[in-house]
Computed example of a mutant assay.
Amino acid sequence: MSGFIATGSTAEAYVISNDGFWPDIDGATLRAAIRLDGSISDARLEVAAVNALIQVNQELRGLKASHQADGHAVLADVPADRINDESCLVLLYRRAIYCTAAAELSERYRSFDSTAEGNRNAEELTPSIDEYRRDARFAIRDLLGVGHCTVELI
């Protein structure tokens, strides 16, 4: 008898290497953090994570240059508060990556099922996608040391 379960989990750890300054991303930890089961393959998760790394790293290019100019070789070396013996800056960076990847995966998930039930599920996912994007934006802005809101008078 077969024990195949389509939504099982993948337990193998793998690391997505970053540029040296920003921390690497552990694929298994990312999967657990955004609560993905095995229906999203490691390859698909890696594509979303790499895209998130590219986007977030580009947005934080100036911050990286500033920290490196101050003599910090890696983000974890930048003086910051610590939680669970880990730099808050590293935690915020990871949050930005995780939320950006989760938003992309949620958007792609919408295309799996075009039935009426799939359309209802897609509508239910829209707030999650927006919330993931918001959380990523907040983490990036916290890293940059700027507020979460921009207001202009017309």
Rank of each mutant, 00 (worst) to 15 (best):
H148K: 08
A49Q: 05
A136S: 15
V56H: 14
G20C: 00
R137G: 06
L75S: 02
E46C: 06
S39Y: 15
A103F: 03
G145L: 07
V15P: 00
E152Q: 05
R137Y: 14
A49V: 11
A28I: 02
N121R: 10
R95P: 01
L60N: 05
P79N: 11
A136R: 15
C88H: 10
G3S: 10
R110D: 14
R44M: 02
I54C: 07
T150E: 11
S66F: 03
A6Y: 11
F21E: 04
A49L: 12
A103E: 05
A101P: 15
H148V: 01
S128K: 07
I154A: 11
S41V: 03
E117S: 13
A52L: 10
A48R: 11
A65L: 08
V50P: 00
G145K: 04
V146F: 01
Y109I: 03
G147C: 02
G3L: 14
G71Y: 13
S39K: 10
T100H: 09
A101Q: 08
D42P: 14
S106L: 14
V47C: 01
D26L: 06
T7Y: 11
A49D: 00
D70C: 08
Q55A: 14
E59S: 14
A13F: 00
G38S: 08
P23G: 02
S111F: 15
Y98R: 07
D135W: 07
D24S: 08
I83V: 10
A49K: 09
R134Q: 05
M1T: 01
V47D: 06
V15T: 15
R94E: 14
E59I: 09
V90R: 08
C99R: 12
A32G: 08
A73W: 13
D19V: 02
R61I: 02
H148S: 08
D26K: 07
R120N: 05
Q68D: 04
A65P: 07
D37G: 10
L45G: 13
W22L: 10
V56C: 10
R31G: 12
R120M: 02
D130M: 14
G62S: 13
E117F: 12
D24W: 01
E123L: 12
L63Q: 13
I154K: 14
D37I: 06
C149P: 00
V15G: 05
E46S: 11
T29Y: 04
L153H: 13
R134T: 03
E86I: 08
V47P: 00
D130P: 08
L63V: 12
L91F: 03
P23I: 08
S114H: 11
M1C: 00
A136G: 14
I5W: 00
R94D: 13
D85C: 04
